[in-house]
Simulated assay, not measured.
Amino acid sequence: MVSTDKNQSSEVMFVLLGFSDYPDLQVPLFLLFLTIYAVTVLGNVGMIVIIKISPKLHTPMYFFLKNLSFLDFCYSTVVTPKLIENLVVEDKSISIKGCITQFFFAAACVMTEMVMLAVMAYDRLVAICYPLLYTVSMSSKLCSLLVTVAYSWGLFTSIIFTYSILILSFCETKIINNFVCEYLVFLSVSCSDTHFSEMLLFIFANLSAIFTLIIIFTSYIFIFVTILKMHSASGRHKAFSTCASHLTAVTIFYGTILFLYCIPNSKNTGLVVKIGTVFYAVVIPMLNPLIYSLRNKDVKEIFRKLLDLKTISQ
């Protein structure tokens, strides 16, 4: 019986409807998402290159930012090309193996980014609350260890989630009213008992979210207390500006997650979820490098110098 279910599942095809309900918007959406993806790739790869070639940016904060840009680039590349393709082709199907593969890499990126944002909050805590000990406390060895923990947790949870999908059975071709293979999609179209998979999702997703949010909130409580104790207004402004970009990125990231999974059911839920997923999977990876570069004087200065060198060479 088990082998029969696996054979059935291996032949299953999913159909990602995406934005098929809006045929007149297919071309404008294609151009829009293609532009967003191009900006995302250029922004994140550019951020990685700038940090790597500039000795001035070889600090813990920019080391974590480089990894965040890498995650955003990977996540966008996993999701956006398939979205763009489905806007111009008639066959919007994807095999069960392809869907699970997309989910595995997307989940790994998201779960790793959760931990990375918490690590970056801790980095800002040490920099602002203990500036004299910052260089010693945030050693290159510790930074590498924290990044390794982030990637390891992301891969581990993604493997757990993917395993919980692989044990499910899928009996026939299913139409998915979205453009990406999300975990809840697999649960909704499965023809087997999903109780165990739902339990794994609840445990590991909530554990990751709660643990990282505790680190972020705790870090910023200490940061704000330290800033309020500063006597110099310029010192307070400088201290706050060093974590403003990260705080903005955290707010957008977790705000979108809460919006997607905590909104009440309504007649427009399908469209709302699509728009929320677009913002979460497509727009945020583009926004992060813009947020950090526009609010960071060091990055803007180096970027300006690179543009000047390019102009001179021409």
Score class of each variant (00 low, 15 high):
T226G: 08
C243D: 03
S232F: 03
K229W: 02
C243R: 01
T212R: 03
I216V: 14
M230V: 09
F224C: 05
G235Y: 02
S232K: 02
I221M: 05
H237F: 06
T226A: 05
A205H: 14
I227R: 04
C243V: 08
T226D: 09
I216R: 06
C243Q: 07
H246N: 13
S232N: 08
T248L: 13
T212A: 07
L207F: 14
I216W: 02
L247M: 09
H231Q: 13
N206R: 13
I227E: 05
L247F: 10
F240I: 02
I216S: 12
F224M: 09
N206C: 07
S234E: 14
S234A: 11
F217L: 14
I221D: 06
A209W: 00
L247I: 01
L228E: 12
L207D: 13
K238L: 04
T226P: 04
S241G: 01
S232A: 05
T218D: 08
H237I: 00
M230H: 03
T212K: 02
A239S: 13
C243A: 13
T248K: 11
S232Y: 05
M230G: 07
L228P: 01
I227G: 03
M230D: 04
L247D: 02
S232M: 06
V250K: 04
S219W: 03
C243L: 01
F204E: 14
L207H: 12
F222R: 10
N206E: 09
I223N: 07
H231T: 15
K229C: 10
G235M: 04
R236G: 06
A249T: 15
